[in-house]
Design a binder for these strands. Structure first.
Length: 218
DNA sequence: TTGTGTTTTATTGCCTCC
DNA sequence: GGAGGCAATAAAACACAA
């Protein structure tokens, strides 16, 4: 882009410093943690004698700075001046490098924290799907067992039903079946639309697994 | 070579602390 | 009020595919 600024297009995009300070005084102060709206800053090279060329630091300078950063993330002024003279840099360059390095470090930490949280979340979702499948399997077994009991109870009632037996109420085979069918768990895991639900769960599980496998490249 | 995306250096404005 | 930190951003430098 244009160095030294001053093109008409750029001029339109930039706020004059007087307007900037006026806006600044009108802006409500943002509280901590709130996103602040910012004015567009002036381009450099606006006559302040700015050497616009950016100089990349040399390998050994970077190595030295990196070692120093690993040693201590913050930079007190004595250390700054010492590093600057040692590396033949402007103390301000050293300060800027540390500032940017701290920002990169923070970004990396946030990314790592995000990755960890995502993995934990994925594991929980995976476990949830697994448990849901398990629940449906068990419900199927429960239904089979109920059917078995029903068949057995029908067989015994036709073979030897008597009036006295019927008078005993709860102990009769038919009431035994009704006890089972009104068991809290049976009520909770009702049989209506069971097959559809199974299919939906299966679909969700499979699509999740595909997404998971794609994400982790397995 | 050129267009485009990423990284690095530098600036600006605001905030906090002493 | 000045120093120093941080977030946001600009812009140069670099990497790389087409």
């Amino acid at each position: 882009m244009s160095e030294g600024g001053g093109s008409p297009v750029e001029e339109k995009m930039l706020f004059s410093s007087s307007l900037a300070s006026e806006l600044c005084s009108q802006m409500p102060q943002a509280s901590v943690g709130e996103t602040r709206t910012r004015r567009r800053r002036k381009a450099k090279g606006d006559g302040a004698g700015g050497d616009a060329k950016k100089k990349r630091l040399r390998g050994e300078q970077l190595k030295f700075l990196e070692m120093s950063f690993q040693d201590e993330r913050k930079l007190e002024s004595g250390r700054k001046v010492h590093l600057a003279t040692e590396l033949g840099l402007d103390p301000k360059q050293v300060a800027v490098w540390f500032q940017n390095r701290r920002a990169r470090h923070k970004n990396k930490q946030v990314e790592e924290a995000y990755a960890k949280l995502k993995m934990a979340h994925d594991a929980v979702v995976f476990e949830k799907c697994h448990l849901e499948k398990e629940v449906f399997k068990l419900k199927g077994k429960l239904l089979e067992a109920e059917e078995e009991i029903r068949k057995l109870s029908l067989g015994t009632s036709t073979a030897g039903a008597s009036g006295s037996n019927a008078e005993r109420g709860g102990s009769s085979p038919s009431s035994s079946l009704s006890t089972v069918s009104h068991h809290p768990l049976v009520g909770e895991f009702g049989v209506e639309g069971e097959a559809d639900l199974m299919n939906i769960q299966e679909y969700n599980f499979n699509s999740y697994m595909m997404e998971w496998a794609n994400f982790y490249g397995v």
